[in-house]
Amino acid sequence: MAMTGILRPGHVQLRVLDMEESLKHYVEDMGLIETDRDDQGRVYLKCWDEQDKYSVVLEPSDRSGMDHMAFKVATEQDLWRYESNVKNFGIETKRIPAGELNGCGERVRFVAPAGHTFELFAEKEQVGNGISTTNPAPWPRGLKGMEPIRFDHCLFYGNNFEENFKFFTEALEFQLTEQIVDGELQLAAFLTCSTKAHDIAFIRSEEAGQLHHASFLLGSWEGVLKAGDIISMEDIPLETGPTRHGLTRGQTIYFFDPSGNRNEVFAEDSYVYPDSPVLTWTADNVGQAIFYHSRQLVDSFMSVTT
């Protein structure tokens, strides 16, 4: 097997203020697919081309933001190996029993140095992507909204930046793909556990544990434009885009869910291999690094989180 250890973002559990409005947003407008609900009122969603039962869990709450982001590891041995790595780094872990989230095996939960809660799991029920595994069609009929392919990554703002970077690259074995630096000081770190431009990214901040955005992959630039059409048609709060990022070169648009959690949909970003060089953007060019065309930083994009 070419890919081992931590495989991919498995799911993100987002807190929402109003479930009905949130389902209109995530299912009707964005086009995720509802796959389950539980007795805590949580609703489970997936993107069409994911095999696992869900990649987004919406949790009813009186506050916005993220409960946790979970990564899927390849084997049960990996789960216990990473649990040990986390403990050896000096971070407490907690085991969440199988079935606490529907269809998910035992989870290892911990708070990373930047203040965000993460989980690892090895098993999740697979429901398929709606396409036969024999002579498969290229895509299933009847998709809605922006037609996201997969939950791709999250970007976080957090403190204890150096410690957090060390934790992700050493204890969890992530690879640095791109960064923003101000002289010797790292301001942003884009990290992957696979061959993607990022599976997770962190921005240096004074405030701990903040969600900047949860991001979903689309198939094309035309898909990003269509997402912009849907955002205006449905009066969804648009932040910026469609445009291109310098970082990761993704084509992108940003908007907010009905609880103020930021979403991104994007297409056609870059990729890495273990021997790829780290790409560096300098702080004096941060405008172009973030929004390649306008080169203008957007105030809310730099400061609004949940």
Binding site: L17, S64, G65, P237, F256, D257, P258, S259, G260, N261, R262, S300, S303, V304, T305, T306
Partner: peptide
């Protein structure tokens, strides 16, 4: 008034 998420989540 500062403009942020416009959905009751960010507080700005």
């Amino acid at each position: 008034i500062p403009v942020g998420c416009r959905s009751g989540g960010c507080g700005v």
